[in-house]
Nucleic acid binder design. Sequence first.
DNA 1: AGCAGAAATGGTAGCGCTGTCATACGACCA
DNA 2: TGGTCGTATGACAGCGCTACCATTTCTGCT
Lengths: 333, 333
Amino acid sequence: MGREKPTLTEVARLAGVSEITVSRVVRNKGPIAEKTRERVRNAIQSLGYVPNRAAGTLASAASLFIGVILPSMSNIVFPEVLRGIYAGLGDSGYQPLLGVSDYDMQKEQEIVASLLAWQPMAVVMAGFEHTEATVRMLAESRVRVAELMDIDSQPIDLAVGLSHRRAGYDSVKHLIARGYRRFGYVGHDWDADRRARFRYEGLCAALAESGLRLEAEKRFAGPSSTIAGRETLAALLQQTPDMDVVVFSNDDLAVGGYFHCLSAGIVPRDQLGLFGFNGLDIGQALPVPLSTVRSNRFLIGKVAAERLLENRGRPSGGEIVDTGYEIIPGATA
Amino acid sequence: MGREKPTLTEVARLAGVSEITVSRVVRNKGPIAEKTRERVRNAIQSLGYVPNRAAGTLASAASLFIGVILPSMSNIVFPEVLRGIYAGLGDSGYQPLLGVSDYDMQKEQEIVASLLAWQPMAVVMAGFEHTEATVRMLAESRVRVAELMDIDSQPIDLAVGLSHRRAGYDSVKHLIARGYRRFGYVGHDWDADRRARFRYEGLCAALAESGLRLEAEKRFAGPSSTIAGRETLAALLQQTPDMDVVVFSNDDLAVGGYFHCLSAGIVPRDQLGLFGFNGLDIGQALPVPLSTVRSNRFLIGKVAAERLLENRGRPSGGEIVDTGYEIIPGATA
DNA sequence: AGCAGAAATGGTAGCGCTGTCATACGACCA
DNA sequence: TGGTCGTATGACAGCGCTACCATTTCTGCT
């Protein structure tokens, strides 16, 4: 049976109704008599009809797409945000359309251009750094725009995230309250991950407020990883052995630092405090749970999607949603 | 300037050519005089024209989409496959359209239905277990189908992955060669992850061949996690203390097992061998690298995308691509 | 019975683009 | 000089659906 794909018209013919009625049944929109609905459903079933969304999008100028641009898929943080977005979209019928920018603004721009070709209802991006052209395209296209992860900058339309500056600040206040005084810092590439810099700034501010300063710090180029955390902490300790706590720019690095301590026979907390950021599962699964900050990544994605659905109209002109964070005391600091 | 979105027609008018010529320039298709191309490009630029893919898809009945269905975003394995798919698609112009099935065949079916509405060139799925309706829909739609991760089953069209049965078999042969005799097994939910069962079967076959058998095994319902690995190994050891090696159904669990050993003062390898599967970064970043099997997830995604692009025609009728695996000796077994 | 008003259904005209076929124009050769 | 080919362009129909009005049929009420 080499028949062609059936269209609305065939379904309508088989069910003995007009095309628009079938369309209404398919989209669950408008008043339809139960009997008619039944008849149409049967026709759809028996023909194996699959609606053509391209046609629907064209006719209605509304696509059921929501563009999502993430900087990376290697770091588990972003798949979690994506999970949140799926959760927030629920069964609204909207489909995420995903692009990965590799932390490259130029690439982000190209992705935005290609996503806009699908007439998405909104574009969700992790981060606030865009090329001028990107911002212009988004403005002209009049889609809603959500910028996720941090709320330390002025959003184009909607921002959902947490204040990394405050998180960094509070982390250090927490550590000072626990008696730590000689701070070290291990971080990764700032240019790629601006949020790490915000946390660092908050950290420095808190130290300064207490008349303290970083005894030592080390940053390496390239993405964060457990291995890098391990090696960088080793190097830092060699250079400055007499710290009592090290703050890492995230949990990946902190877990690496923990592994270094294991290898070097350093007892975490008692001999050297370790503090991360994110609250990843792996940190909480260590023999001793990592002291860190929970960043609610799933929630960020979920809330963003929900807000966008809630108000599909025009930009609200700078709404900011704070999803907060929470210090996990753990047992490494 | 509250102008509407410009269309092909406006661009054509401004450039003083016909619509089809603009279309040809945009798609880089057909012979166009350099001078004309220039003129059209300028017009596009000055209007800020963004093509409407929905219209293009409808007119040409070919969408530049490739449907991708993954069972989970929580396990880093699948984002890595997705990265591979992006890499394989390169700048072909094809866009992945992602669905997440949560290891649920019914949900997979719904996702397939909704993806097909976009007339994708192909559908990529991780796994071989589908509902009858799913298979029927895919067959009738005549898109290409790629089934990823394992090659132990007959594919609908294209399979890319490795033989988990052989991987399990070889792992145990390797461990036997290293002198281990008293085997334990820690695994997770089989119904969700059939590949884990294939590895288990290979493992048992290898043991039987050498006149050995599992001394003890423990499986828990639910997804794999580091915590679960830790707890399950603890329980297994309590029940059967005298094993000399434990094979885990994957690295997440094995890392958890490693953490248990740390807490319990068991020296990995010397007192108890630990063996995983996947070759995750985290395993290789431990103070002592995990003994495991590298499963080339990125490559699986990449090769699948490349093969699909290579031959966009009709299904090849059961092509199988073996991306292989590699035993990582590590230092925990 | 008669009528307003709601509920259910249909006719028609595009949405913006591309496939198909036709046409115009040189360049080249005999 | 005329014919042939290849390159460059255009006219037009239509992809499958939905928005926007009708129009018809059913209530419930006086």
